[in-house]
Design a binder for these strands. Sequence first.
DNA 1: AACCTAAGCAACCGCGTCGGG
DNA 2: CCCCGACGCGGTTGCTTAGGT
Length: 242
Amino acid sequence: MYWEIMAENRGWGLMEEGWRKGPWTAEEDRLLVEYVKLHGEGRWNNVSRLAGLKRNGKSCRLRWVNYLRPDLKRGQITPHEESIILELHARWGNRWSTIARNLPGRTDNEIKNYWRTHFKKKGKPSSQNAEKSRARLLRRQQFQLQQQQQHQTNTKTILPSFDENDNKLPTFTQLMRQEIVLPSTSDEQGLLYSMINSCAAVPEQASNEDMLMWDGLWNLDDLHGNITNRAYYQPALASNFC
DNA sequence: AACCTAAGCAACCGCGTCGGG
DNA sequence: CCCCGACGCGGTTGCTTAGGT
């Protein structure tokens, strides 16, 4: 493998503070696997001492999690996995580790790389399934825009700091119960996102409707990661597009 | 054959969070 | 509380490979 040649011959592996860096060799992999067999995962900073590896804990953990773990699924992302990635990314954004938890055998790094190469630049998925998922998302967004046009006149903003002098952020329940007109300026968008992030977990007492609304909030990103301007979302109707 | 470019992927970096002392 | 180390996460980098000209 080229990495090993690089590591041996090209100055890779010169150490900063005594740690080797760069590509892993087969021998290093073997030592790390042995270490995990004996001591289990975790305590990565002990690896150098107990396994004789000149790697820092961070590097060891990364190598294990992304490459050496026995439960990793090798090979290409399947169309089914791809559609899951699309759906979950539409819902959660760049929460790669969260997405990875829903794809057994796949790592956050793998999913992140896959997304970047397949979707971020081109904006075009490579399979029919992905196209369908994408089309579904587009339908949702079009629907949201349609609803926005219909309701634009009698909607109210959820951004309290934009009306009068109230600086308080809304509670989760307030956020869930109100009709929303998304802001159009970047400052307002930033505030809305910080509001959403400030109650990033759905409370246990949230109703099904709240959950739908919550999903909707996370679906407001457009395909390039920006908030769709003035998109309108109404939870009761969202199920039409699931 | 030589060169160029985009895709793919392993690894690194910086930062945030958490838990123990 | 506060500090510090360990860990996890998301963003980025840098290299190889494959395909096109």
